[in-house]
């Protein structure tokens, strides 16, 4: 009898393990980040790309509209593919794009903007990548959607695509 019970327990346990492993195969092993709860935007002080003077974060997000923070760099190839989409978004009145120039050479960055156009209402310089960390970023490109309460409500790792643009448009409506 005792044997039967332990056999039963073992079988249950093994089936459980099997199911877990089987399901585990489907879930990607690389971390796909997601915003679980709304996060407030960090407060920081940062150098402005154009004026080259320091500016406080509450100054940057002062208007009562949606903001997009887009991390980019001139050396980042995927940034080029998403750039036209950012240009398209920047035409939208109810949203402002803030660019975060990530670990970049300033001259190259200027050239990038001159060549491909400037979708950003303001560009911030993140020379050493630490501002990116404040936002919880992994690298470039990365895009954050910030709502009127100044909460980060969406986070997109990697270049954005038309689908994401549509999603953003739907949210800000």
């Amino acid at each position: 009898m005792k044997n039967k019970i332990s056999l039963f327990i073992v079988i249950i346990f093994l089936s459980f393990c099997f199911v877990i492993f089987y399901k585990g195969l489907d879930t990607p092993n690389n971390y796909t980040p997601k915003v679980n709860e709304k996060k407030n935007i960090p407060t920081f002080k940062v150098k402005d790309f154009n004026s080259n003077s320091y500016i406080n974060s509450d100054k940057i997000f002062e208007e009562n509209i949606f903001y997009i923070v887009n991390i980019w760099a001139s050396w980042c190839v995927p940034c080029r593919t998403e750039h036209p989409l950012l240009m398209q978004l920047s035409k939208n009145e109810s949203i402002k794009l803030i660019g975060l120039n990530y670990r970049d050479n300033l001259d190259n960055a200027k050239k990038f903007i001159d060549d491909f156009g400037n979708p950003y209402s303001r560009i911030l310089i993140d020379k050493d990548g630490t501002l990116g960390v404040e936002f919880g970023a992994y690298g470039v490109p990365e895009t954050f959607l910030i709502d009127k309460n100044k909460d980060i409500i969406k986070k997109f790792v990697g270049p954005i695509n038309q689908e994401i643009v549509n999603e953003i448009k739907l949210i800000i409506k």
């Binding site: 093994l14 099997f18 492993f21 089987y22 585990g24 195969l25 489907d26 092993n29 690389n30 971390y31």
Partner: peptide
């Protein structure tokens, strides 16, 4: 199977994972 995140993971394809998994449990 690539189920783990490791420095040494081999390039993987899901069919392999499923095969070893079933084989493993069959042996057990």
């Amino acid at each position: 199977s690539g189920i783990l995140n490791s420095v040494h993971t081999f390039a993987n394809d899901p069919a392999r994972g499923i095969f070893i998994l079933i084989f493993l449990f069959a042996l057990i």
